[in-house]
Nucleic acid binder design. Sequence first.
DNA 1: ATGGATTAGTGTAAATAGTCACAAGGATGA
DNA 2: TCATCCTTGTGACTATTTACACTAATCCAT
Lengths: 206, 206
Amino acid sequence: MTDRDIPDIVVGRLPRYLQALEHLQLSGAQTTSSQELGEIVGVSAAQIRKDLSQYGEFGKQGKGYSVSYLVHQLQQILKVDRVWPMALVGAGNLGHAIANYPGFGQHGFRITLIFDNDPVHIGTRIGPLTVQDSARLVPVLREKKIKIAMLTVPVRAAQSVADQLVEAGVRAILNYASITLSVPDHVHVQYIDPIIYLQRMTYYLD
Amino acid sequence: MTDRDIPDIVVGRLPRYLQALEHLQLSGAQTTSSQELGEIVGVSAAQIRKDLSQYGEFGKQGKGYSVSYLVHQLQQILKVDRVWPMALVGAGNLGHAIANYPGFGQHGFRITLIFDNDPVHIGTRIGPLTVQDSARLVPVLREKKIKIAMLTVPVRAAQSVADQLVEAGVRAILNYASITLSVPDHVHVQYIDPIIYLQRMTYYLD
DNA sequence: ATGGATTAGTGTAAATAGTCACAAGGATGA
DNA sequence: TCATCCTTGTGACTATTTACACTAATCCAT
């Protein structure tokens, strides 16, 4: 079902479909169509149908898609039909904001560990968690079998922390530091850098 | 020079080249090559040469690129060779973290206005700025000719705030709310939603 | 029941993006 | 000076992605 040869660009759209479907669900919609969904996410109806057809037949001709069923299917495809424990490395300003953001838990992503290398932060509490010393990062992540980590450390520390995450068996890194990380092929990295996005938009301004 | 028919996907890579070049600059490098740059950002050397060739000839055969010259050129192309005043709408947790992040200023993006509609926040200070009532958003942004805004409001408010931003003449929105915004063609939107990125990675996990 | 309207899934064509390989320009060292 | 080594810029080619158009299934109003 989830063959590896489905292009990454298709995979990248699935979470946006899911997001829109969950909003539809909240607003009480029972069914939707590729047309409607496409208008919400700004993608052509044909594109959505083709993307979904990579994984099966989820709709009914003449009727559309059952919202709850499609939500369920997409959750399975994206493997978010379970709870993912995550580690957060970096307990600075951004780290705190992220640790306190309820959206992760609402979508099955649970921050279970927070690390920092600064003695000022180590031992302090953020919500229900205590900030641990980064020195113990590798053994702890290994033992807890953590597969996902978020990186909110300064640029100068990012690559070295990433190396440790890889060593600890982490397979997915959400990187907030403004640097391209070098990791093995089996590790996935996604970048969140507001500057990059802003520069991408100023290009089009006068 | 900056023709509109240069594909968006090319434009999207330019900020990453610039980021890498600025790091090279900090580490003291005088020149670089498409080869080296490609290794840093994880893109083929030919891709980089082709992307840059859309805008001119910036390198020297046999020698490579002058780092500082290419930085300068990319800054011009991306229009970040100036200071952009920005508005921040939403003074919650995330809004505070963003307002206090020094990276924006370091790259020529200056947050000059902060808005919120919650009386709890209105009037409070964040750094040198006072949080203003969202009710005054449109006239104030118009008067100050603000072209870029960052959105850190709850999902339920995001579209309505976006509509106001458009009305106020904003041309670029960096949206942190997990919803696809509907805006006119002349307004650019970039999305920062960690859940989307995480789901994109869990797909590839076991 | 029936005809018209709707909508999914899909094969094919078109458009877009990326890779490759090479000519040409410039640097370097004997 | 001249031969060799680098590295850019680019045209041709390949691969990928998107759009289009059509069939078949379903719904709904009459």
